[in-house]
Simulated scan of single mutants.
Amino acid sequence: MTAPRIDRPEFAALTPGVSEALLALGKAIKASGLPEDLLELVKLRASQLNGCAFCLQFHLNVARQLKVETPKIDLLAAWREAPVYSARERIALAWTEALTLAPQGGADDALYAAALAEFGAAPLAFLTAAIANINAWNRIAMGLRFAPPLPAAA
């Protein structure tokens, strides 16, 4: 295991306004009406792809508090093969992967059209912002090696 470089509170203290801006973006996304369980799946999947231990544990804790179905959490890395995800969740996860792995191909027109048809323009824009926000947090937490939070109590 690698040692943390700085922790989240120290990052916030060193960068006045940055954490607050990212948290405000998260609040705006939450207020959009997108289901919280869907947003947590998106955050978890992006964090898996990026290998961010802090964000994985943080959003696992949140998903469990929201009572996201255990199979959806457990099978997330293999969501394409798992029958537990709705069509809407599948499109959100595909969109998450396309944006998170943008240098490997990005979001093609067919995926965009499917996502737009499923979500509509404003919800898709909020979903896109949610993916951008978790990717920003992933890069901050990974670069500074934030220590993962403790797992939520059962």
Rank of each mutant, 00 (worst) to 15 (best):
60 L>F: 06
115 A>L: 10
114 A>N: 10
108 D>T: 09
44 L>M: 04
75 L>I: 07
120 G>V: 09
48 Q>G: 09
60 L>E: 02
54 F>M: 12
87 A>H: 14
131 I>H: 08
59 H>V: 14
92 A>D: 00
117 A>Y: 12
66 L>H: 10
131 I>W: 01
104 Q>Y: 12
117 A>K: 12
116 L>Y: 03
52 C>L: 11
65 Q>V: 12
44 L>I: 07
107 A>D: 06
69 E>N: 06
106 G>F: 06
123 P>L: 12
67 K>A: 15
122 A>L: 11
114 A>K: 10
89 E>T: 11
95 W>Q: 03
52 C>I: 13
107 A>I: 01
103 P>C: 06
136 A>D: 04
83 P>V: 03
86 S>Q: 08
56 L>V: 15
99 L>F: 07
52 C>S: 14
124 L>Y: 04
124 L>P: 03
81 E>A: 10
124 L>I: 15
87 A>I: 08
97 E>Q: 11
53 A>H: 12
125 A>Q: 14
68 V>D: 00
93 L>R: 03
65 Q>C: 04
112 Y>Q: 06
99 L>N: 13
112 Y>M: 07
65 Q>D: 13
137 W>C: 02
90 R>H: 14
65 Q>N: 11
85 Y>C: 06
70 T>N: 01
49 L>G: 08
108 D>E: 12
94 A>R: 09
109 D>Q: 12
90 R>M: 12
117 A>E: 13
80 R>T: 04
62 V>E: 09
66 L>W: 08
138 N>Y: 09
72 K>D: 01
134 I>R: 01
85 Y>F: 15
